[in-house]
Design a binder for these strands. Structure first.
Lengths: 216, 216
DNA sequence: CGCGGTTTTGAGAATCCTCAAAACCAGTGG
DNA sequence: CCACTGGTTTTGAGGATTCTCAAAACCGCG
């Protein structure tokens, strides 16, 4: 993989790394830090689609299809590994193992999106919140060090609202209930998960065994 | 690709082709017909994730990851091309072009799921309905013949409800409004799209240019 | 004709939203 | 050191959307 690496990108929290409708020549993998990707409606309504952790691919869509149809914003300082879109054909020809890993990661992403869609479409507000926090807790768990997370998830209630498809006000009231049950604790700009198992049960969700995740 | 084909599968409408948590040894591509994939919560709430048309892959997740986490059900009689999960490694080693196409299709699927998530999370009921019908109309358009669709989409209002994350009752009232505007027409077990452009505008959605779709 | 699946309608209730404003906190500049 | 500012969390109140329950109408099919 080293042969295809073009460089590294360091960004701060709040930076927009790739933007909707852009045609940049690169795609990336996350080396460290955490981010989220989202889409906007014309009138500003925002839907967060998923969160990115170390090992995740960023911008594969723009590499294979023509352009990017979502944006990505950093939640922490990040370090990214840069690749050139043009070289992806060569990669598939010369390194079947890496090609397989890329597809593997894409399939994993699809599975997560399925899960989110189920949640937003069919779970109640409190179930959705429980699911999301359990999900993030699970993903962050093994990657705390690399993701640059001390103890709390670096998100705000606005992020939660835009992920769950709820208003900020109702999100706040819902999270408050989870806090009363002792499952989470909110800090300024952060969320501490206290009872991951409890959240999973409340959501009616079992994390699927991750399997071996290739780290590109 | 012929070398990897193991056979064909013919199914009727209503057949469950692959089931949640199954570990079958195969995956498929759709040769003709139309289907949908969905997830269930324990208490029976159902979320439809996406629809399958000729050219789409079915069960890639179970080929790369361990098991299937959603089910697929046929909406029309179907013809599927069967592949063996075990051979996928070999395919990646020997046929980079096909491997690339598989990833391309997976990326396309991811993009569609992003779109759906935006819709379910942030659009109003009528916008969601308009988006879904415009989307299905668009996908069916070039594939009417192969998908085995005469004129109307072979879905019920229950399918629409479970795709949009709404109740059947409210879905019915919403579709009724679209009908009053002359954009669609409902038959028994089917939906005829009369004004695709109008639906797109109402939803605030522009279909992305499909690009060249590989047909495996 | 009767049956199951689908569409339609009405009514009351629950969830969730918008508007508005206050409280809180970290960081900034004076 | 303190006041100010912008972002975030919190709360209340009324209203809109969407849900559940219930039942009727409709349709193709055996």
């Amino acid at each position: 993989m080293e042969g295809f690496k073009k460089g590294e990108l360091i960004t701060d929290r709040g930076t927009t790394i790739v933007a909707q409708a852009s045609h940049g020549p690169h795609f990336y993998t996350v080396l460290s830090g955490m981010a989220f990707r989202y889409k906007l409606l014309e009138d500003g309504r925002r839907q967060i689609l998923n969160y990115l952790f170390p090992g995740d691919l960023m911008g594969l869509q723009s590499a294979l299809l023509d352009e990017m149809q979502h944006s990505v914003e950093a939640l922490t300082p990040m370090k990214l590994c840069i690749f050139e879109k043009e070289k992806i054909g060569e990669l598939y020809r010369k390194h079947a193992g890496l090609a397989y890993d890329i597809t593997w990661i894409a399939a994993q992403e699809e599975r997560i999106l399925d899960e989110h869609l189920l949640s937003v479409g069919r779970r109640s507000a409190i179930e959705r919140a429980a699911y999301l926090l359990a999900f993030l807790s699970m993903r962050a768990k093994s990657l705390r060090r690399q993701a640059g997370i001390n103890g709390a998830l670096p998100i705000t209630q606005t992020h939660v609202a835009d992920t769950l498809g709820l208003s900020i006000v109702h999100t706040n009231k819902t999270l408050r209930k989870l806090q009363q049950r002792g499952m989470v604790r909110w800090l300024e700009r952060g969320c501490e998960i206290l009872d991951e198992t409890g959240l999973q049960e409340l959501a009616g969700w079992e994390a699927s065994p991750a399997g071996r995740r290739p780290f590109i």
